[in-house]
Each structure stands twice: as C-alpha cells, then as structure tokens.
C-alpha cells in the first residue's frame, strides 16, 4: 500500500507542543503541504509571532526569523524587500496582528507588500493564559472578561480582515476555519491561493483562519469545533473578503 497522507516534507519530525485539539498545528500542516505542493521549500522564509505559535520555527523545515510581538508584517517586509524573489510569510495570532501589531499590518497591506499573512483567530490570548483578545466575542468569557466581554467596557471584537480589505494594496483576503474536514480542506486552498498571489507579484495577501482553543475556551476539542460552527462564524463570517486576483 502507498502512503497517501503523512507528514509534509516541509515539516520537521518534531512533536507539536500545542494542547489537544489546538488548531495551530493543523494550520502549520496546511502551510507545509502548500509549500510542498508549490515546491517552494528552498525559497520560503517564515516569520513566526510571539504567542502560542512562537515555537512555529521548530516545526517548519524552512528558514524562519522571529519577530517581536505584533511586528511580523514589518519584519516580513524587511526580508521581502531584501530578497524579492523569495516567498515570505508571517504567521500571526489575533492579539499579535489585531491589537499590538495593527499598525504594522495595516501599513504593510496598504503598501501592497508582497508578503502573505496567516492570521490565526482563536479569540483568546492563549500563551498568556486566556485573556481577552481583540477578537473575543461579546459575552465570551476570558480571564480578563469574567462574566463575558462587555461592550460598554471592552468594546467590539475587531474585524481586522475587513479593515485590511479597505487598504488599496491588499489583493486577496479570505476568512476560513479549521473546525471541520471540509473547512480544513478549503483553508488549504485559501493558503495556496494567498501564496500564489504573492508569487505572481500581485500584492498583499492574508488568510484569516478561525481556530479552536479548547484549553482556554474550557471546552472539549469536539465542543470547541462546534462552538466555532454554531457561534463564532456568525460573528466572523467565512467568506472571501477581497479578491482582486483575477482583476490584476
């Protein structure tokens, strides 16, 4: 029998440190599969964030350069401007990209930097222990929103991808999810399209991926995926937010 599914070539043999049922490692795998399929393992440079995915460089068998919290887009900009023929991606969580690094992200998108951003939205600060994220839903519990996020105190969850779509330099932005096989398969397609957008030199591309955090949501992995399906996608609808790939 032939192996039809296994560890992608662009992933190291390391065991993931993520919690049971975490979406990060699924997303890592999808990125690695896309790298393999596009044959760009020797051309790609990744920029991992601070946060749960800070150790992403232990899993990807590609060149990786760490960015300070929130500065992924700026570090990726530097790498890409220096090496325009390489593929550069930043991997960023919601706190990283939509709170502390909002400015860097919006301006990179607006300049049309030829980078791809993988934006993992799990609505919580995982690594620091479950505090409110900019994307935490109204009413959703976190360690800094006991009793749930309150509008009058905490404001609205931020629609960063929609904001980035307004930027003239962004070309392809899609929100996907990894809560079911169907959505995982689609997410991979979106990542592939985002990388291709960069390879073709069209502009800034980003895939926002709704991802479960069973530990901090205090749910079983299965319940966490159900929560995405029943609740989160109502607040963060899955859709192509911007696609000008065909128009360019």
């Amino acid at each position: 029998m032939k192996k039809v599914f296994g560890r992608p070539k662009s992933m190291k043999a390391a065991e993931f440190h993520y919690c049971p049922g975490c979406g990060h490692s699924i997303i890592h795998r999808l990125i690695a599969e896309v790298i393999d399929e596009l044959g760009i393992q020797e051309k790609i440079i990744g920029v991992p964030p601070a946060g749960c995915a800070v150790l992403a460089y232990n899993y990807f068998d590609v060149d990786m350069g760490e960015a300070p919290h929130g500065r992924g887009a700026a570090v990726a900009t530097g790498i890409k401007r220096s090496l325009p023929d390489r593929i550069v991606f930043s991997y960023q969580g919601d706190g990283d990209i939509a709170a502390i690094g909002t400015a860097e992200t919006i301006h990179a998108a607006n300049r049309g930097e030829l980078i791809t951003t993988i934006f993992v939205n799990n609505g919580v600060y995982g690594m620091t222990g479950g505090q409110m994220a900019p994307t935490t839903l109204v009413g959703q519990d976190s360690t800094t929103t006991p009793g749930g996020r309150r509008l009058e105190r905490d404001g609205f969850p931020i629609d960063l991808s929609e904001m980035l779509a307004i930027a003239h330099g962004s070309v392809y932005i899609e929100r996907t999810s990894v809560h079911s096989p169907k959505h995982i398969i689609h997410t991979k397609k979106a990542i592939k399209k985002a990388f291709k957008t960069q390879i073709e030199g069209l502009g800034f591309s980003l895939v926002e991926i709704l991802s479960p955090c069973p530990t901090n949501w205090k749910m079983s992995p299965i319940k966490a995926n159900e929560f995405i399906n029943s609740t989160i996608i109502k607040n963060f609808p899955l859709k192509v937010i911007k696609d000008e790939v065909g128009k360019l």
Partner: peptide, 17 residues
C-alpha cells in the same frame, strides 16, 4: 515607515538576510 517600531523591525528583517 508608519512608526519607529515598524522601521526597526524592517531593519530586523533585512538584517536577517
């Protein structure tokens, strides 16, 4: 750049190369 923070981080990116 949009800020000094962004500038120094772009510096980091280039320096890595």
């Amino acid at each position: 750049s949009e800020s000094e923070l962004a500038a120094i981080n772009m510096v980091i990116g280039v320096s890595m190369t």
